[in-house]
Design a binder for these strands. Structure first.
Length: 374
DNA sequence: AAAAGCGACAACCGCAACCTT
DNA sequence: TAAGGTTGCGGTTGTCGCTTT
C-alpha cells in the first residue's frame, strides 16, 4: 500500500511538475531506466517523457524506485548499527547508508530524526555528541547520592518495578521536583539500558542488558568494564531481582550479527573494526589497555548549543520535535504531590555505596565520570 | 463528531564537491 | 587553471493520517 505523502502537486516557473509522483510517472521512469540506464539525469526527463527536472527523477529513483530498496520497518539490528555508525560518522547519512544494504540515506535520516534521536534523548544522551547531555551532567554527577537516597528511602523498592513511580511519592516531602525528575531520568536510563523496548514501558523489563546498549553506555559515559561492573553491582544492591546483566565489551568490539564484516573506513573519520567479535560470554575480560582508545576517535561533530531545536528549521516546526516533554518522562510524577513522607532526601546524609566509592576512586584519570563527580 | 495536535516521511532546496572542457 | 555543468548530500518543508482533546 503506497501512501502518497509529501507536497501537493504543483509546477515550478519552468512548468516542470513538482510534488508527489504518480504511479504513471513512476512507471515511465522505471521503464526508461531499465531499458537505458539513467545516463545523464538532466537529459533523462525529456527522453523518458517526464515533465520533471532531472534532480527530481534522480531522487525518486534512488530513494524509492530502485529495485534493491528494502522497504519496511528497520530491524533492531539495523537500528543499533545506525546508532553506532552515527556515533562515529555523525550526520554522514550517505556513508551510514553504505553499511545498510537496501536502505537509503534519506530513509535513515528520517528514521534518525523521528525515532533514534528521541531514544537517545530519553537516555539522557546528546544525539549529536553521543555523550551525556550537558544539561544532565548534574544529574549524572549526583548519581551516587541519588542511588544512595533511593536505597535508604525506598528500601526494597525495585527500580524497575512499575510501582516505582508511586513510591517516588515518598520523596516529595523535600518539595524538590527536580530531585524527583532526576530519579525519573535515572530510571529511564537504566530501563533503556536493560530493554530493547520503549524505555517508558515498565511492564516488560528483561533480565539481561542488551550487549549493544552496554557498549553504548560504556562509550557514552566513558566507563571501563570495571566501572560498568560496579554499576551492575550497585543495581544489584538496590534491585537484586531485576538488575540488568551488563555485558561490557570495548566499543571496537561491536560487530553486528547481521553485518559481521562491517569495516568502517578510516578516511571517513571512523574506526576500523577488526572484523572479529571479541565478546566473551558477557564476562569482563578486557584489560584496561584493551579498552576504548578514545584518542583514536576523530573529533565528533560538536554539539550544537541549540541541538534540541536544531531540526526545527525556520518556522520552529520539527519532525519528531518536542523532545523536551519526553526527556524525563516524569510529568506524571510531578503531579502526584498529595502523599508525602516526612523524610527529606536533600538533607539526608548519604553514605556512598562501596561500589561507588571504588568507582570514584578508580585511578582512571581520564574517566569522564571522575571529572564530573569531582 | 469535530477540531487540534502530533508524528511520519516523501520530496524540495541550496550548497558543495566533482567532472568536463 | 578557470569556468560551467552535473551530481550528491544534508537540512528543511509540506502534507497526510493517526491520536488526543
Amino acid at each position: 500500500m503506497q501512501i502518497m505523502m509529501g507536497r501537493s502537486s504543483s509546477s515550478d516557473e519552468n512548468g516542470l511538475k513538482k510534488g508527489p509522483w504518480t504511479p504513471e510517472e513512476d512507471q515511465k521512469l522505471v521503464d526508461y531506466i531499465e531499458r537505458n540506464g539513467h545516463g545523464s539525469w538532466r537529459a533523462l526527463p525529456s527522453l523518458a517523457g517526464l515533465n520533471r527536472c532531472g534532480k527530481s527523477c534522480r531522487l525518486r529513483w534512488t530513494n524509492y524506485l530502485r529495485p534493491d530498496i528494502k522497504r519496511g520497518n528497520f530491524t533492531e539490528d539495523e537500528e543499533k548499527l545506525i546508532i553506532h555508525l552515527h556515533s562515529h560518522l555523525g550526520n554522514k547519512w550517505s556513508s551510514i547508508a553504505t553499511h545498510l544494504p537496501g536502505r537509503t540515506d534519506n530513509e535513515i535520516k528520517n528514521y534518525w530524526n523521528t525515532h533514534l534521536k528521541k531514544k537517545l534523548l530519553q537516555m539522557g544522551i546528546d544525539p549529536v555528541t553521543h555523550q551525556p547531555r550537558t544539561d544532565h551532567l548534574d544529574i549524572l554527577a549526583n548519581l551516587p547520592q541519588l542511588l544512595a537516597i533511593a536505597a535508604n528511602n525506598l528500601g526494597a523498592t525495585n527500580l524497575f518495578n512499575p510501582s516505582f513511580d508511586m513510591n517516588l511519592n515518598a520523596l516529595m516531602s523535600q518539595s524538590d521536583a527536580t530531585q524527583i525528575a532526576k530519579f525519573q531520568l535515572l530510571q529511564n536510563i537504566l530501563q533503556v539500558l536493560s530493554t530493547n523496548s520503549t524505555p517508558t514501558n515498565t511492564s516488560s523489563i528483561p533480565q539481561n542488558l542488551d550487549p549493544f546498549y552496554a557498549v553504548q553506555l560504556s562509550e557514552y559515559l566513558r566507563l571501563n568494564p570495571q566501572h560498568l561492573q560496579n554499576l551492575q553491582d550497585l543495581a544489584m544492591n538496590i534491585a537484586p531481582s531485576s538488575a540488568p546483566n551488563l555485558h561490557p565489551f570495548g566499543t571496537h568490539d561491536f560487530i553486528s550479527p547481521s553485518y559481521p564484516n562491517l569495516h568502517l573506513d578510516h578516511e571517513q573519520g571512523s574506526k576500523v573494526f577488526s572484523g572479529q567479535d571479541c565478546r566473551t560470554n558477557g564476562n569482563i575480560t578486557l584489560g584496561k589497555e584493551e579498552y576504548v582508545d578514545f584518542e583514536s576517535i576523530p573529533p565528533l561533530v560538536p554539539a550544537s548549543p541549540d541541538h534540541l531545536s536544531h531540526s526545527n528549521g525556520g518556522n520552529g516546526q520539527s519532525p519528531g520535535g518536542d523532545v523536551n516533554t519526553d526527556q524525563l518522562g516524569s510529568v506524571n510524577i510531578l503531579k502526584q504531590s498529595d502523599h508525602l513522607s516526612s523524610s527529606n532526601p536533600t538533607s539526608t546524609s548519604t553514605t556512598l555505596d562501596p561500589n561507588w566509592q571504588e568507582f570514584m576512586d578508580d585511578e582512571a584519570s581520564g574517566c569522564y565520570w571522575k571529572e564530573i563527580i569531582e
